[in-house]
Design a protein around this nucleic acid. Structure first.
Length: 284
DNA sequence: CCTGCCGCCTGCGCGC
DNA sequence: TGCGCGCAGGCGGCAG
C-alpha cells in the first residue's frame, strides 16, 4: 500500500493494535519477504521472539516498530504488501508471508504480499531511526521536513520534475498517484526540467504535494482494490477525489479538457493537456 | 558525485 | 477457452 497516506493509515493501526504487545513467535512462510535481513529467516524469527513492541514509526513509505531492546523491525509494503491484525482462527491469506503471534490473546500480525516487492527486516539499534533508512529524506508530514531546503535541492537537479518528486532521497512519501495529483494542482508538467523551476513554482509544487497527501490521509488513503487496506482490512475512499490519476479520457475537473495518459518510466503519467502544457524543452 | 535504467514478482483484464 | 501482452500505489543496485 504504497504511498505516504496509505502507509500512515497502516502505521496508526499498528500503533493502536500492536504497540505494547510482546512477540510470542514468528514464522516466515516465504524467505524472500525477509531478504533484507542478511542473517536469514531463522535469525529474524529468533531475534524478534520475546521482544516487546514499543511503538510504530514511519518515514516516507517505510515503517518500523521500535522494540524494548532498542532495535527495530523495519517494514516496507512495496507494491502489494499489507500488514493485517487478524484473529488466529481466521484462514490464512493466499499470500501470507510472515506471521507474528503475541503472548496475549489478541489477534496475530500478518504480513501479506502478493508480489513480494516488500519485506521485513530486524535492525540492531534502529529504534530511533534505522541506519538502513538514513538515505530516505524526511517526508512532507515530518517535523524535520524543511521546504526551503527541498526547493534548493530540487532546483539543483538536472532531471525531469516527476522523476525528482519520485526520488525518495530528495523528499519521501510521494509515489505515482500523488506525484501526478500534486503536479496537476500546481499546474506543472511532469517533464519540466527541474533546473528551470522558479523558487515559487518549486514551493507551490511541494505545498500541493503535502496538501494532497494530507487530504488523502483524512480520507483513509486511496484504495482502487482490496490490495490497499488498513490493518483491519478496510480501504480508504480518496480515489473519488483524484483529479488526474487513472482518469484518462475523462474531463479535467478544472477546465474540462480530456485527461491524457502518457507512458513514463515503464508506468504512466496522467496530465491535463490544458492546465499542464508540455514544456518546449522538457526532460524525461 | 549524479542520473537513468533494469530487474525483481504475481495477477488481472484485454484482444485475438 | 486459452494465450500472450501490457499494466499495476516501489525500490535497490549498478553502469555510465
Amino acid at each position: 500500500m504504497p504511498e505516504l497516506p496509505e502507509v500512515e493509515v497502516v502505521r496508526r493501526g499498528l500503533e493502536r493494535w500492536v504497540a505494547g504487545r510482546t512477540v510470542a513467535a514468528v514464522s516466515v512462510a516465504h524467505p524472500r519477504s525477509v531478504r533484507r535481513h542478511v542473517l536469514g529467516a531463522v535469525d529474524f524469527s529468533a531475534r524478534l521472539a520475546g521482544r516487546r513492541v514499543v511503538g510504530a514509526r514511519r518515514r516516507g513509505k517505510y515503517l518500523w516498530l521500535p522494540l524494548d531492546s532498542d532495535d527495530a523491525v523495519i517494514a516496507h509494503l512495496g507494491m502489494s504488501g499489507q500488514l493485517l491484525v487478524r484473529p488466529a482462527l481466521e484462514p490464512d491469506e493466499t499470500h501470507l508471508r510472515v506471521r507474528v503471534t503475541f503472548t496475549d490473546a489478541g489477534g496475530e500480525l500478518r504480513f501479506v504480499d502478493q508480489r513480494t516487492f516488500g519485506g521485513l527486516a530486524y535492525e540492531s539499534g534502529g529504534a530511533l531511526l534505522p541506519r538502513s533508512l538514513a538515505h530516505i529524506a524526511p517526508d512532507p508530514l515530518d517535523p524535520a521536513y524543511d521546504a526551503p531546503t527541498v526547493v534548493m535541492a530540487l532546483r539543483r537537479r538536472r532531471t525531469g520534475l516527476k522523476r525528482a518528486l519520485l526520488d525518495q532521497t530528495l523528499v519521501s512519501g510521494i509515489g505515482n498517484i500523488y506525484a501526478d495529483e500534486a503536479l496537476w494542482r500546481a499546474g506543472l508538467h511532469y517533464a519540466r526540467a527541474t533546473d528551470t523551476l522558479t523558487r515559487a513554482e518549486a514551493l507551490r509544487l511541494l505545498s500541493q504535494a503535502r496538501a494532497v497527501m494530507t487530504e488523502a490521509l483524512a480520507a483513509g488513503g486511496t484504495s482502487f482494490d482490496a490490495l490497499y487496506v488498513d490493518v483491519n482490512g478496510r480501504g480508504g475512499y480518496f480515489d473519488r477525489s483524484l483529479a488526474v490519476y487513472g482518469r484518462a479520457g475523462r474531463p479535467c475537473r478544472r477546465c474540462g479538457a480530456p485527461i491524457r495518459r502518457d507512458p513514463f518510466m515503464n508506468r504512466s503519467s496522467f496530465t491535463c493537456p490544458r492546465c499542464q502544457p508540455r514544456p518546449r524543452r522538457g526532460r524525461w
